[in-house]
Design a protein around this nucleic acid. Structure first.
Length: 776
RNA sequence: GCCCUGGUGGCGGAAUUGGUAUACGCGCAUCACUUAAAAUGAUGUGGCCGAAAGGUCGUGUGGGUUCGAUUCCCACCCUGGGCACCA
């Protein structure tokens, strides 16, 4: 079964129901999807436009801890409040499909998907150094670290070794990258995902070690610079160091250095201002496989252990970092690339661009691209190198040492080790406990056995051998629930969720998905990953979840800054709704500016929309006249323009078209048909007013009108006359007039004659419908 | 540093493939209605010169291509976002 072409799935990124409630910025996206849904419905589509709550996660939990109210209660209260506020906007949501990620019936399936990941070997447990937020007291995913700080609270992240569940998102790196091409998403967001995935084509090159069987394999994208390699560097984590250091004369120094860099956070290690440091593995020499030259071997923390092979060949002449390091430690610098267009370049500096090879034996004179290939091929023939591909994307740290999340459906058995909970035992319900403060030592609050409520949950039987076992106490991150919620709406029947391709396939992929660009590499990457796993499991039928994505621009406070409680610049929609009504507020939400761009709130802006609606209201009092061509032309042009603008999310211009059409027809005279069409065009934006007026004048707004081409084409048009590039006159012409006819008329006009004042006409240009340009 | 946005009146912003820059809304000014104010309606509203007609300068800055550039090209400046020792 595949997507039903009559079905239109119009989806908002579901909100986190925060305690602060809605401000005027939230409904911008909701208003847009509302307009779009209503518009598509008028076109005869079956619309799915659901809403729900992404309610697990830190804010509710932190609020709960602070105010000593259980998160369950906090969430229930916030949801009620949010929903109440949202309803005041008169949005056309299918509330019978309301979902909540904290509902055990819901997270039964979140856990189910985790089991699928586990079965496929895509979820594994590991104790590795990860990013840890000391304030939230939990591990974080790479994507949740912004400039070295916790995405949630802004605290500086530290490195910590904690037992973690990790998802192998890297296994899907290629597909996540490739399938972006087929998506109708904003290019900048695709680009952000591409950069985050960070595919890089290069070569692995093997350096033998002198008087040893060990080898160092490095990754480089610049095999063309291999002749310029004067040392190789191992990351402090590199396992080869253990083997090599015993033979070097400065073991103590090396150990100290490794110990020191272990304690550094990623931020400290990558601080740009920071001077590079490193230690040579003395008496160890590596052999450059291309020319047999011996080079020194170093350990330095400017090389990352988790990328490529954790080792690099250093070419100080053609890499900034190596250059800096080589200068500091007095390592030779050999130039092997010259810029193609500049033979006399100053060879004391670094040159990092591609160019032409020099000092590279038989490769001299080749371009970088050519040499890259040829050098790697030569190495390949002697088993000292090959082409390879690397990704920046790292596996997803998936466990949190926090209470308010989905329990991971795993038990730890003394005999059997890690055992998956059988699907029939799902959901593993998060126990209702009183003590859920985070601990901070890398353990979860759910491992505190001194609390009897926790102990009762924690101690269980192994599903495998029946012996004593303990539940996994880490919980899932907030992103888990939102990874598949667009499917949850489809499989919800009554109050139950039943996974059924017959329900899913007719609606996927989501036709239109609207939300903030801040999720470009978090939610939008994670859910694409899960979706692909579900696709491989044949649990969904499409490779991608969201076909068209539009990002909504943030609405800023009147001070031009992001609205926040602490800045005190939050605009509460309630008084505006009361004074002007939902129609006017929604109109202004969209009229304020281009949809995907940020916009400053202006308290007065809504007034114009209110005035417009008041005028529309008076339509019910006027006497309709006979149809006339003037109004027909206006309304047909409006049908075309408003439809196109809605399709392209240019709501601001759609609304100005409506305003303009209204005042033009008012000047021309309203007939009933024009009024009906106008109200239909208005109805997605201002449904209350449109329907109320339509009732009064006794028409119905059930179908989106089609425009009549013959009223759209202009027969007469006013064009400007330019003389030497300056507008000097304008003239109304019929579009069927020939250029000669027009030339005749134009050149005899008084203003034109005056401006030419007898000079010779060098050129006469007539662009049909647009302009007449005379050059003298 | 790299990648991506955007820069147009007092303000938010319009302008199809290069073709009358400033649509639409806000604000402001004048007028009408009113005892008055609010609300509403009408007219006007980029700068400069001019009584007007009209002229002239104007889309971040400096160049270029073109009969014609907000739009295309080159260099630079600023705003917002993302990434950041990824070899």
């Amino acid at each position: 079964m595949s997507k039903n072409s009559k079905n239109f799935y119009c989806l908002d990124m579901f909100p986190y129901p925060s305690g602060a409630g809605l401000h005027v910025g939230h409904p911008r996206g909701y208003t847009a999807t509302d307009v779009f849904s209503r518009y598509k419905k008028l076109q005869g589509y079956d619309i799915l436009h659901p809403m729900g709550w992404d309610a697990f996660g830190l804010p509710a939990e932190n609020y709960a801890i602070k105010n000593k109210i259980h998160p369950e209660k906090v969430v229930a209260e916030n949801v009620a409040r949010f929903k109440d506020q949202l309803n005041k906007f008169d949005l056309s949501y299918d509330w019978d499909k309301e979902i909540n990620t904290t509902d055990p019936k819901y997270y039964r399936w979140t856990q189910f998907i985790f089991l699928k990941l586990f079965e496929r070997g895509l979820a594994y447990e590991a104790e590795t150094p990860i990013n840890y937020c000391p304030s939230c007291k939990t591990g974080l995913a790479n994507e949740e670290v912004i400039n070295g700080k916790c995405e949630r609270c802004g605290t500086q992240v530290v490195r910590k070794n904690i037992r973690q569940w990790i998802l192998k998102i890297t296994e899907y790196a290629d597909r996540l990258l490739e399938d972006l091409d087929g998506l109708d998403w904003p290019e900048p967001i695709k680009e952000m995902q591409r950069n985050w995935i960070g595919r890089s084509e290069g070569s692995n090159i093997v350096f033998d070690i002198k008087d040893s069987k060990e080898k160092i394999e490095v990754y480089t994208t610049r095999a063309d610079t291999l002749f310029g390699c004067t040392y190789v560097v191992l990351a402090p984590e590199h396992e080869l160091i253990e083997k090599l250091k015993t033979q070097s004369s400065n073991v103590k120094e090396i150990n100290e250095y490794i110990e020191k860099s272990k304690n550094k956070s990623d931020l400290e290690r990558t601080e740009l201002q920071k001077e590079k440091t490193g230690v040579e593995l003395k008496r160890i020499n590596a052999i450059n496989p291309i020319n047999g030259k011996e080079v020194s071997v170093w350990v330095a923390d400017y090389v990352l252990g988790h990328y490529g092979t954790g080792a690099v060949m250093a070419v100080p002449a053609h890499d900034e970092r190596d250059f800096e390091f080589a200068k500091k430690y007095d390592i030779p610098i050999i130039h092997v690339i010259k810029p193609s267009d500049d033979i006399n370049q100053d060879q004391t500096e670094v040159f990092t661009d591609y160019g032409i090879l020099i000092n590279s034996a038989e490769f001299d004179g080749m371009t970088s691209a050519e040499a890259n290939k040829k050098i790697t091929e030569k190495l390949k023939s002697s088993n000292h190198g090959d082409f390879t591909i690397n990704f920046k994307l790292r596996d997803w740290v998936f466990s949190r040492q926090r209470y308010w999340g989905e329990p991971i459906p795993i038990v730890h058995c003394e005999k059997c080790g890690i055992v998956a909970v059988p699907e029939n035992d799902l959901p593993i319900i998060l126990p209702h406990v009183e003590n859920y403060q985070p601990v901070g030592d890398g353990s979860s609050p759910l491992s505190n056995e001194s609390d009897p409520a926790i102990a009762a949950w924690l101690n269980t039987k192994c599903p495998n051998c029946g012996g004593p076992a303990k539940r996994e106490t880490n919980t899932m991150p907030q992103w888990a629930g939102s990874c598949w919620y667009y499917i949850a709406y489809l499989i919800m029947i009554g109050n139950e969720y039943i996974w059924d391709r017959k329900k899913i396939d007719p609606w996927l992929p989501v036709n239109l998905y609207v939300g903030g660009a801040e999720h470009a590499v978090l939610h939008l990457l994670y859910s694409r990953f899960w979706h692909k796993v579900l696709y491989d499991e044949k649990l969904v039928g499409t490779k991608e979840p969201f076909q068209r994505l539009i990002s909504v621009g943030t609405i800023l406070g009147i001070d031009g800054l992001k609205m926040s409680k602490s800045r005190g610049n939050i605009i509460d929609p309630d008084p505006l709704l009361e004074k002007f009504g939902s129609d006017a507020l929604k109109l202004y939400e969209l009229y304020i500016g281009p949809f995907s761009q940020p916009a400053k709130w202006n308290q007065n802006g809504i007034v114009g929309m209110h005035r417009f609606l008041q005028k529309v209201e008076k339509l019910s009092e006027i006497k309709f006249s006979e149809k006339n061509d003037g109004s027909k032309i206006i309304i047909n042009k409006a049908i075309k323009k408003v439809g196109e603008d809605i399709e392209s999310f240019s709501f601001n211009t759609a609304i100005s078209t409506l305003i303009e059409a209204f005042s033009d027809i008012t000047k021309n005279g309203w007939d009933k048909k024009s009024a009906e069409v106008f109200l239909t065009l208005l109805s997605p934006f201002a449904p209350k007013m449109a329907n109320s007026v339509s009732n009064k004048i006794n028409t119905s707004l059930s179908t989106w009108p089609e425009f009549d081409e013959k009223y759209i084409v202009n027969e007469k048009v006013t064009v400007a006359i330019q003389i030497n590039g300056k507008v000097r006159d304008e003239i109304e012409i019929s579009i069927n007039d020939s250029e000669d006819e027009i030339k005749d008329i134009v050149l005899n006009r008084e203003k034109v004659k005056a401006n030419i004042s007898g000079a010779e006409i060098k050129k006469f240009i007539y662009i049909k419908d647009k302009i007449i340009s005379i050059v003298v």
